[in-house]
Design a binder for these strands. Structure first.
Lengths: 359, 359
DNA sequence: TTGTACGCGTTATCAC
DNA sequence: GTGATAACGCGTACAA
């Protein structure tokens, strides 16, 4: 049952009635002005070698004179192709997503595609609505970034249907989906292992909602694996699941302090949480890293400029965006329909927010 | 002379040849399946009252069954309207622009428009190219955010021509352009005046490239006016023009320290610069605000969580985005062609990075 | 209330 | 090389 799509299409049509006017010179016009047929004009543009240099020059001149601009929508319609790509982001204010977005834009433009962006604000219904908008504009492909688990079924249908899709930053279970991301497990493992190397054995984990976001779950696993490798027992008390925001980080860290035999280091699986945590510790009169070490995740621009500069994991945002778009465009062009999954590697960036345990 | 547009259109056509395939149920199909004409189907959607409830219901059912999705591009073509709006941003990684973007998206979707976004990376040629891409997709309108002065002439032509345009965050000289922004002059005046109220008389200004960005110029003027009002002589030595980045802020503040009779307070006309400045001061062993006061501008999310929390100017990003889109859509719908300019008001947010001058 | 016929701006397939 | 002509999917007089 999919009546919703129909209703939405309906509402859209109504609103279009009051949409923006469009007018411009057409091929037909410049054809008659040049004294040739529109077929020739079309050819002059997309197959110059098939047209006499003289007439071609003339056509170009007239086009220029009339300030002609190609109509991509009409072309797409005729050709039954699309030069639009839809990108779904959970909110463009996250600086790391932003970097990915820039990369996608770069690549898309390079290849002659335009980007339509929709931000979901982490709301399933909005997400659904935007995808429908995308479909009405006949996007050639879809990039899904950091979507929510709750929409899994919906997307699963979408992907299996017709539109080429690439997931990035976040993917669904272990379906055969195209995906570009990075190894969350490995990154979490390494930074946890690093903290153990600094003699910490009580290491707190401040992580995103892993029940909803699988990359958070991977980070939890990486953390546990690192503990295990070093013979440290896992203590559920030391794991706190929070939305990634400064405030949540600030509040959560205070709860960590209340634990008897409290952690000497905390791995906050997002720089935002880490910075909030540092703020919270300062409020409590504790020093980072002397009294407690804090490690982050993401390497946002600000991480190098907070106090103390944050030890964290650098995520290859730009490369991810570029690769995601590359994969999608290759799918669109039908180069190969095999499933592609990439995990780019991350870097451990050591700054000054973690220190060796003193005792 | 505008041969560039033509050449670009040409390149685009080539690339489209390898674009994405599009296929879906059409009105024609659901018409024959229902046993009516496509005109009736069309009406069933956008003028339900003109069609018999029975046939309408039947059409809807069939549409649903065939999983019909409205083709906005075709509709736009036929109606000579457009439901696409182009937004030009200088790079989506700035969190304050990001907030505006979300607002625009919200409003646009509400009104049945989709957003096509292009980021210029502060590069004139890219900017130009993207606008051409927009034109090829026949965007109904254009939002220009924080553009560069160097492109002024180009945009001036664009605006005067055909496409409805609204400028935001930044506008051109005092042409009759539609604009939504905030009062940079007033904001700079107030925060400078606030610093004077804290007994500072040597106040440094760390400002964006005011020769290129007019809002930076306004902030400079507001700063000067506040000094004048308080009988303080303007000292060119105390003004430094820098690109808004952490590093520039860090470096610039060190130069301030070299000045004999150095400033006791610095107004950094961007939080990024301010935070960089604080970092620089800490490196030099100085305390904020005890040794020197720092004020910012923008109130980015992080401003409340740095050390010390930043006294700054809050900019109504969300409201600006919403209003900008509202104005544009009204223009598109031709409600009125009169020029509209808005300056929203800002708030002075007092935190702990500025203190009264001790002596 | 419904159908016919044409147009929107472009491309593709034939001919010439 | 170039020109008719028919699509592409939809809207809309106009007529029935």
């Amino acid at each position: 049952m999919k009546p919703v799509a129909v209703i939405v299409g309906f509402a859209k049509i109504i609103s279009l009635l009051t949409g923006g006017t469009v007018a411009s010179a057409t091929m037909k016009m410049i054809a008659s002005a040049t004294g040739v047929s529109k077929a020739t004009v079309s050819r002059a543009f997309h197959a110059p070698h098939l047209v006499d240099p003289k007439t071609r020059l003339k056509i170009m001149q007239v086009a220029e004179q009339y300030n002609y601009v190609y109509n991509a929508a009409a072309g797409d319609l005729s050709r039954k192709k699309s030069s639009l790509i839809g990108v779904l982001v959970p909110g463009p204010n996250k600086s790391f997503f932003g970097t990915s977005l820039i990369a996608m834009q770069d690549k898309a433009q390079e290849e002659g595609f335009s980007l339509v962006i929709g931000n979901t604000k982490y709301d399933c219904r909005i997400e659904k609505k935007i995808v429908e908008q995308f479909q009405e504009h006949r996007v050639a492909g879809l990039i899904l970034t950091g979507f929510l688990k709750s929409n899994e079924v919906y997307f699963y249908n979408l992907v299996r249907k017709d539109i080429p899709c690439v997931f990035t930053w976040e993917t669904m279970a272990d379906q055969g989906l195209n995906y570009v991301g990075f190894d969350n497990y490995d990154a979490a493992f390494r930074i946890t292992d690093y903290l153990v190397g600094l003699k910490h054995r009580r290491i707190g984990l401040l992580v995103g909602p892993y029940s909803k976001i699988s990359r958070a779950a991977s980070r939890l696993e990486g953390y546990r694996a690192a503990l295990k490798k070093n013979g440290i027992d896992f203590d559920p008390q030391l794991v706190k699941e929070r939305e990634p925001s400064h405030i949540e980080g600030k509040e959560a860290v205070k709860e960590f302090l209340k634990i008897k035999n409290r952690p000497t280091a905390i791995f906050a699986a997002s720089d935002t949480l880490a910075i909030g945590a540092i703020t919270g510790l300062k409020e409590k009169g504790l020093k980072v890293p002397e009294d407690i070490s804090i490690a982050g995740f993401d390497d946002i621009e600000f991480a190098a400029f907070c106090d103390p500069p944050l030890t964290t994991i650098r995520v290859p945002s730009y490369e991810m965006g570029k690769l995601t778009m590359k994969v999608l465009i290759e799918m669109i062009r039908g180069a190969s329909s095999q499933i592609r999954q990439y995990d780019l590697s991350t870097d451990l960036i050591i700054r000054n927010s973690c220190a060796e345990l003193q005792r």
